[in-house]
Nucleic acid binder design. Structure first.
Length: 335
DNA sequence: TTTTTACCCCGAATTACCTCA
DNA sequence: GCTGAGGTAATTCGGGGTAAA
């Protein structure tokens, strides 16, 4: 792997960049080239491939990509929030810029330095259907994303270096008065993610990449979304469980009062008619699938040898998600 | 075979940004 | 315009699992 960095002066281009489209040096405030000589899969992808062999094909494709050439225009120190919220296009971005295919075809058009020069939109690369909220960029996220992609290329042992770079860049951002900006997912993106979450609450790497590609998001964003979504689900389930336990407690308290009262009555009856009736036997049963709890009080009249049962059902435990097919079968079998 | 190391993924906690009343 | 609350994207941290050396 070759890494070349040039600040300001691109009069001496790096050799391995010769294969890539020429840039107009007058527009460049920062030029970085990354030539990957890696021909094998990274460690992480090897590991991934052990789970899913069909990823190896993708890995080979990744490693054979042409060298990366990244051009950043000198950015304006004006915070984005002070910029007009209009949809912004960056004519120097070609349409085939892609995060997921690792095909960075960023080309600078001569004379295209208009605008703030804050760079490209990492969240919505295809801006045609982007709403304004989703079209806002996230500078810090962009930085971390690039580092992640580099890490995939460079493989083992570079994580610390990348962290150092990230920390360095973060400090640079602080110096420039930049703070992390927050992406707002569009309704369509959220809806799609929700649908995916209903199908599977966790993602394997392949699903993550596919989702990211489909939604024009970075895989990390998809991953974070699913993590946060699981956390929200768990929190909601905890609240629901809490409510359920409260209702159970109330029901059981009522039942306990009733039984105490009944016991008193029976004791009183026993003193007057000692052989009339045995004490009731109360059992608790619970449906294993829906976790519905029922208390059954069975009383036997020895004189008539008849048994009477009274069942009080507690509310079924609410679930945020419907039962699976297996759970339904188990429930039907149990009932 | 066991240990060490590096990496990845996840949950939990937290931060920080954004929107809205 | 200011402010506080709520939602949520993003970050940080620690633990567990895995593969390679």
């Amino acid at each position: 792997m070759e890494l070349a960095l040039s600040l300001g002066d691109t009069s001496k281009p790096f050799k391995f960049l010769d294969k890539t489209p020429k840039l107009s040096s007058k527009d460049l405030g920062f030029c970085m080239g990354l030539g990957s000589g890696v021909t094998t899969s990274t460690r992480s992808h090897d590991k991934l491939g052990s789970h899913e062999n069909n990823h190896q094909e993708d890995d080979r494709r990744v490693s054979s990509d042409p060298p990366l050439q990244l051009v950043l225009l000198p950015f304006s120190p004006v915070p984005r929030r002070h910029q007009p919220p209009s949809k912004t296009r960056f004519p120097w971005l070609t349409d085939n810029f892609s995060w997921l295919g690792f095909e960075f075809s960023v080309v600078s058009e001569p004379g295209s330095t208009e605008g703030s020069g804050r760079g490209f939109d990492v969240n919505r690369l295809s801006m045609d259907d982007a709403d304004e909220g989703a079209a806002l960029s996230s500078p810090n996220s962009a930085a971390s994303s690039f580092q992640m992609d580099f890490g995939i290329r460079s493989g083992r042992g570079n994580k610390r270096d990348l962290e150092a770079i990230e920390a360095s860049r973060a400090s640079d951002d602080e110096e420039n008065g930049l703070t992390r900006k927050k992406l707002r997912l569009s309704k369509d993106q959220s809806a799609f993610l929700e649908e995916s979450f209903k199908e599977h609450s966790t993602l394997n790497p392949k699903q993550k990449l596919a989702l990211a590609k489909q939604l024009n998001l970075r895989p990390r964003q998809v991953e974070v979304w699913f993590q946060n979504r699981r956390a929200r689900t768990k929190l909601k389930q905890t609240e629901v469980d809490c409510e359920y336990l409260k209702r159970c407690c109330e029901t059981l308290t009522k039942e306990n009062r009733r039984l105490q009262k009944e016991l008193q009555e029976l004791r009183a009856l026993k003193t007057s008619q000692p052989f009339y009736m045995q004490l009731p036997a109360t059992t608790l049963t619970m449906c294993p699938s829906c976790e519905r709890v029922a208390t059954t009080t069975t009383t036997t009249n020895p004189s008539t040898s008849t048994t009477t049962s009274k069942t009080v059902s507690l509310p079924a435990k609410p679930r945020l998600f419907p039962m699976s097919h297996g759970q339904v079968q188990a429930h039907q079998a149990a009932s």
